[in-house]
Design a protein around this nucleic acid. Structure first.
Lengths: 340, 340
DNA sequence: TAAGCTGTTGCGAACGTTCGCATTCCTGGA
DNA sequence: TCCAGGAATGCGAACGTTCGCAACAGCTTA
C-alpha cells in the first residue's frame, strides 16, 4: 500500500518528465516513437496504473456511470436484471468505464441519490431504467443538463436519448397470433392507465383488434398491479362469465400475470392453450419450463443494455452530439400456452 | 458545472478557515458548537457537497465497494441477483458507500479487473460471490492483503471473512422431509465433484441417509451442469430403470435441475409428488408457480447481501478486526412437488 | 547566417481535499 | 501579575494527476 508507483517513478525510469508520461497515456500530444516505447516499457516494468482519484480530480471525469437498480414493476424481484447488468458492464468496461450502482428510493427521496452523485462529481452520466411519465429524475437531470440515457420513453416534451422496446408492435404480434389461431374473445391483463409502458402495449392490443374488425370490449380489460395474484384473480372473474361473455384468450402485459391466468384456468378444470389461450410478455427465463410452456414476447435485454451504454459513452466522449432514439422490435415466442 | 461550490466557499461564508470546515465534516477535531452551527448553515445555504475525487486523493479512501456479477453456476442468468444486489446497495448506502460493479471474465483473465481496481485505488474493498476451491481472486486479494468479504467458503487453508448458506443442513432437511413421507429410494441431481457448494450439499444428502440407516446408492447420484436439460436427461435415465432400482424421489441441488426432473417425470406419464417426489434448492421466484409448485430450500439472499456488506464496511472502518464466519441455515419450503 | 517554422518535451500551476503540526485564545492557579 | 495547560482554530504541505503554455532542438528558407 505504502510504496505506490506514481507517474513520476515511471518518468524517472524512462528518463523524461512526468508530464510527458501523462501525455503518452492520454494520447494528448505527439511524442517520438522511441520516447513512447521507452515510457511504455517503464510502465510495464514498474507495473504502473494511474491513480483514478488524482486523474478525476484534475480532468473532472470520474469514468463511472451511475445506475440504479430499477423500480421494477411494483416491487417484484427483477429476474432479468442479471442479463441487463452484465451487458452494460461489458459495454462499459470495453470503453474504460465502470458502473456505480446505487439503490432506488421511492417517492420524494427518489432524486436524492442522483443529486448527491452529481454534486460530488462521482459519475459522468447515468443510465436510467424504468422511466415513467413525469419522472422526477428526468426533470432533474434535464434541468442540470447532466448526461444520461434512458431505457424507456417518457413524456414527449422531454427531449433525451433513449432505447426502448416497441411494446405496441410486440403486443400487436401477440394479438395477431391469437387471431390467426381463431381466437376472437381476447381479454387483456393490463397495467394502470398511468403506466407509460402499459399505454404502449395497450395501443398494440387495440390496434390489432381494430385492424381485424373486432370491437374492443372494456369488460375484457383488467388493470392491476402486474403480479401473479392479480392475473389469477382477474382471470377467475372472467371465467365466471356466462357463454359468449367469457374470453377464449388472455393476453397478459407481463409474464407474472400470465402465470396467474394459467393457474386460474387450470384450477377451473380447463386446459390452457386449448380451452383458453394465454400469452405473456417479457420472456422471463423460467417461462419456457411452465406447463404448458408460455407463449410470450422476448425482451432483448442484453441488446438494450449494450446500446444504452454505448450511446451514453458516445455522449460522454463527445462522439454523439445529437439525440438518439432507438426502438427495438421484440420478437414473439410461440409455445404451447397459446397453441395447445 | 463551472461554478462549483468548494470547501473554501463554505469557509468564507462561515468566517473560518477551510481546514476547519473539513474537520467538522469528518468529525476529526472538537470545534465550538456555535462554530459548527455556522458552518453547517453555510453548507446548507450554499448547497455544498464535497468533491469525492479530491477527498479520495488525499484520504486514500474511495468509499466504493467492488462487486462483480457472480459467475453464476454455469452461465445461466441469475434470477436472484436483484434481491442480492439491492440488499447490498441499501446496506452500503447506509454506511456512505456505493458499489462499483464490473463484469466477470473467465479463466486466466478473471483476476484482471480486480488487479486494475486495486492498482488504480478505485475501491476500498470487494464483495466476492460464487467463490470456489482455489479461487484465484481469493489468492490474489489475500496475497495483497486487500479487504474483502465473500459470499461462500473456499479451501480451509485460506483465511478470510465470509457469509455462507449451510447447504449441508439445507440438504439434510430436504432428505429428512422425504424420508418422513416414506420415500426410501432418493436420487440426487448433483454437481461436479469439483464444486465446493456441491460437496457441501452432497454431505447433507449422505448424512441424512446414513442417519436413517439407508445405504447411499451411487447409481442414484448424477453429476452435471446444473441446468434444466441435465436434470431432465438424468431423470429420464433413472425412470428407465426396472423395479426397485428406480428412485421414488429426486432431490436436485438447484431449482433448474428440479424443473428438468419434473418435466421428465411428467413426460413419462407419471405424477410429480405422487409417483416420484421432486425437490429443488434456491427457491427461485418462479418455482412457487410451477405445477405442482416446487418443494425447495429458500436461500436468504437479501440477508446474506446485507451481512456481507456490513461486515466489509466494518472491516474498512476498522471496527471489525477479526475474521467473521457467518453460516446461515436455510429453510425448507414444502410445496406439492414432494407431497402430491 | 539569421530568421522562421515544426515537432517534441519540459515546466509551473492547478484540481479540492485531508493531514499533522503550529498557533492562538482562554481559563485558572500560584 | 504571570505562566501553565488545554481547547479551538489556522496554516502549510501534500495527495497524483492534467492542462496550457513556454522552451528548445533541428531543419528549412531567404
Amino acid at each position: 500500500m505504502t510504496g505506490r508507483v506514481t507517474i513520476k517513478d515511471v518518468a524517472r525510469e524512462a528518463g523524461v518528465s512526468y508530464q510527458t508520461v501523462s501525455k503518452v497515456l492520454n494520447h494528448q500530444a505527439k511524442v517520438k516513437p522511441e520516447t513512447e516505447r521507452s515510457i511504455r516499457q517503464a510502465i510495464e516494468r514498474l507495473g504502473y496504473t494511474p491513480h483514478q482519484a488524482a486523474s478525476s480530480l484534475r480532468s473532472r471525469r470520474a469514468r463511472l456511470i451511475g445506475y440504479s437498480g430499477p423500480p421494477w414493476p411494483l416491487n417484484q424481484a427483477n429476474p432479468i436484471l442479471d442479463e441487463f447488468l452484465q451487458s452494460m458492464l461489458h459495454a462499459a468496461e470495453a470503453a474504460g468505464y465502470y458502473l456505480l450502482c446505487f439503490p432506488h428510493h421511492s417517492g420524494e427521496r427518489q432524486v436524492d441519490p442522483y443529486r448527491r452523485l452529481v454534486d460530488s462529481n462521482r459519475v459522468d452520466g447515468f443510465v436510467l431504467s424504468g422511466v415513467e411519465y413525469d419522472d422526477p429524475r428526468l426533470r432533474y437531470l434535464l434541468d442540470k443538463d447532466f448526461p444520461f440515457v434512458a431505457f424507456g420513453r417518457s413524456n414527449l416534451d422531454m427531449k433525451f436519448s433513449f432505447v426502448d422496446v416497441d411494446g405496441e408492435s410486440g403486443m400487436r404480434s401477440v394479438v395477431e397470433h391469437l387471431l390467426s389461431l381463431g381466437r376472437r374473445r381476447i381479454a387483456a391483463l393490463a397495467w394502470p392507465e398511468t403506466s407509460r409502458v402499459g399505454k404502449d402495449r395497450m395501443s398494440g392490443y387495440r390496434h390489432a383488434l381494430q385492424a381485424a374488425g373486432i370491437e374492443v370490449n372494456t369488460e375484457w380489460i383488467a388493470r392491476g398491479e402486474g403480479n401473479q395474484a392479480y392475473g389469477r384473480q382477474a382471470t377467475q372473474a372472467w371465467l365466471a362469465l356466462p357463454g359468449e361473455r367469457r374470453p377464449d384468450a388472455v393476453v397478459a402485459f407481463n409474464d407474472a400475470m400470465a402465470v396467474g391466468a394459467m393457474q386460474a384456468i387450470q384450477e377451473a378444470g380447463l386446459r390452457v392453450g386449448v380451452d383458453v389461450a394465454v400469452t405473456g410478455f417479457d420472456d422471463l427465463p423460467m417461462t419456457q419450463f411452465l406447463s404448458p410452456p408460455l407463449t410470450t414476447v422476448h425482451l432483448p435485454v442484453a441488446e438494450i443494455g449494450r446500446q444504452v451504454t454505448e450511446i451514453l459513452v458516445g455522449i460522454l466522449e463527445g462522439k454523439i452530439t445529437k439525440l438518439r432514439h432507438e426502438l427495438i422490435t421484440p420478437q414473439l415466442v410461440v409455445r404451447h400456452s397459446s397453441t395447445g
